[in-house]
């Protein structure tokens, strides 16, 4: 299959240093669900939300997938197109992608297989009031 240059963000590379909201530094591969929850609690602008994977379909390009999420209590339907190796953080499980082998190959980031029903960490903007 054609392999276009990967333009994924660099911070998914194993060993990348991530700063939590309280200033603590952690490697991307060491992040836990609690790190996201606690960072969002501190944040004045962002709140954590859960996004459940409802569908995974082929995207328009060979290496892309369309993932449909049901977001938050209102179950807002959101569809995103990402490369198959794009990792999402699943509550209680950790990094997961549609093609974990490719994620591991490209980023050296251990991943589980992202499946329908998985609940991913996502963010929404807090209401200003």
């Amino acid at each position: 299959s054609p392999s276009s240059p990967v333009a994924l963000p660099p911070f998914f590379m194993r060993g990348s240093i991530i700063q939590l909201a309280d200033g603590e530094l952690k490697r991307v591969e060491d992040l836990k669900t609690e790190d996201f929850i606690q960072s969002a609690e501190i944040s004045s602008e962002l709140k954590i939300d859960s996004s459940t994977v409802e569908r995974i379909d082929c995207g328009q390009s060979p290496n892309a997938v369309l993932i449909q999420f049901s977001v938050g209590e209102l179950k807002a339907q959101v569809c995103v197109e990402v490369l198959v190796e794009y990792p999402f953080f699943v509550f209680g499980q950790g990094w997961s992608s549609c093609c974990p082998d490719r994620t591991t190959q490209l980023f050296e980031l251990s991943c589980a297989k992202l499946c329908v029903g998985d609940v991913c960490v996502s963010l929404t903007l807090r209401s200003l009031r």
Partner: peptide, 25 residues
């Protein structure tokens, strides 16, 4: 092996997709 003098640090929220931003009055 050359140790980099400065290592980029990324904010935690970079790793999380923003989905369905909410705006309410």
């Amino acid at each position: 092996n050359v140790e980099p003098r400065s290592v980029p640090v990324f904010p935690w929220h970079s790793l999380v997709p923003f989905l369905a931003p909410t705006q309410s009055d």
